[in-house]
Design a protein around this nucleic acid. Structure first.
Lengths: 244, 244
DNA sequence: ACCCTATAAAGTGTCGACAATCTGAAGTCG
DNA sequence: CGACTTCAGATTGTCGACACTTTATAGGGT
């Protein structure tokens, strides 16, 4: 689970109360700045805050009915995720989406997820294997249902990569990918609409990777994952060169 | 402007003025929170703030003669570097140094710096090659001078890895390693005193890696870098198992 | 007409104070 | 004697106001 409770907000007023409420009534365990952070993160990732647009602290503070202080705390966390950029005495902007930035992410993912795969294979636990196998079967069913339809919205692909990384049991790796990099990946997917059209092929690749992990073959698992990601990268690259 | 010179606290007056001054006189381009961040980062990395110790916001604020707000901003940046940990309504602590944490870093570095090497070899520019070669020669001289003396304090090793990463020209990779991960690496080195004793051998490995990059052989460059880092990891692992 | 200067508006950085929460010690009850 | 409750102290989270910087606009000189 990913604890993303926020639903699409219709109006700004709703957004405000949604942020305010969820702390006092439901759970008092997170701070207001936390909730602002989560809300803004969704808004940026899903493109409701346009990439490259300027961010006005006073305006946002009013909109969410919070003080500028709390808002600033949220903004700084967004900055540490590289979802916004801040310049002293000038202000914050939502990051731009560039072709180069996207390709850079793929290179980093290739390195990190390749390593995650290796570690997952070397340190695999019974629980991990069970979960991975179970997930794969779920995806297979789903794929049979809607043949060719983009491997049921990139969610399936995300699920796969997410769980592999978890299985690495390397907290630094998990944090770097799942809590940081993946949000930018999502941002690109949402806004450039990169619904991986490699549906069937991606599923087969996923399947082979999990087999390698089950076999405890870290080297093979890493190679397969790196190929998988590089194939995805090439696919994107091709798509970007010719506009539709 | 920044009128906090008025009241120098007797104790820790040096630390306070050090932070306050560097903005007014030298360069007014960074905010107070920025300077607090830089100062605290050094204190933590170099161990003047003990690993695992609790951080009191009011106390630190007094010590640096700043408001709690500015201090909190600095703390949050430290948190995003994983140099401190914060829990809501409880406070912040300097992170603990654990054997596991150190080994996890090595796995991530192996993945990322391996990729950096590959990219450096594939996208190498004349400037990069010149700088790398120049650095190597500088290190060679230095090594001749003080034979066996730990490859002139790990700084040389750091220099090497730093420049390789720069040569990758992948901004995400550069940021992840140079602006984030390396500070924790430094923290471990300072405090666990991991002055790489692989002096001579490390230099030869560095040399071979640069040759591969010069030759444009990305695959080899990556393999050599990964071996280099893994060797360092094994060395640490050995050292940790038997205390001295 | 153009460019430079000066002023006004808006925005960011910083601060001190108040409210909500946690920590720890004293006290009470079983 | 130990465990639970209560209360005080201290710490964190949040807020609104002020000081300084940047940006936009209007004015004057060449």
């Amino acid at each position: 689970m990913e604890g993303q409770v926020s639903k699409p907000t219709a109006t700004d007023a709703k957004a405000a109360s949604a942020v305010a409420d969820s702390g006092k009534a439901v759970r008092g365990s997170q701070s207001l700045a936390d909730r602002l952070f989560l809300t803004l993160r969704s808004e940026i990732v899903e493109g409701r805050m346009a990439a490259g647009s300027k961010i006005s602290e006073p305006e946002l503070a009013r909109r969410f009915d919070a003080s500028r202080g709390s808002l600033r705390e949220a903004l700084m966390r967004l900055e540490s995720l590289s979802l916004i950029e801040r310049r002293v005495n000038v202000g914050a902007r939502v990051v731009d989406l560039t072709e180069r930035g996207l390709l850079e992410i793929y290179d980093v993912r290739e390195a990190l997820e390749g390593m995650a795969c290796r570690l997952a294979a070397e340190n695999r636990s019974a629980d991990d294997l069970a979960e991975l196998r179970q997930m794969l079967e779920r995806h297979e069913q789903q794929e049979e249902l809607q043949k060719g339809t983009a491997y049921f919205q990139p969610e399936g692909d995300f699920d796969f990569h997410f769980r592999i990384v978890q299985a690495s049991h390397n907290d630094l790796l998990i944090d770097t990918l799942c809590n940081k990099l993946y949000y930018r990946v999502r941002m690109y997917r949402y806004q450039l609409g990169m619904a991986s059209p490699r549906a069937h092929r991606a599923f087969r690749e996923h399947s082979h990777i999990i087999e390698a992990i089950e076999a405890g073959d870290g080297e093979l698992a890493e190679i397969l994952m790196r190929r998988h990601i590089r194939a995805s990268r090439s696919n994107i690259e091709k798509k970007l060169s010719k506009p539709d």
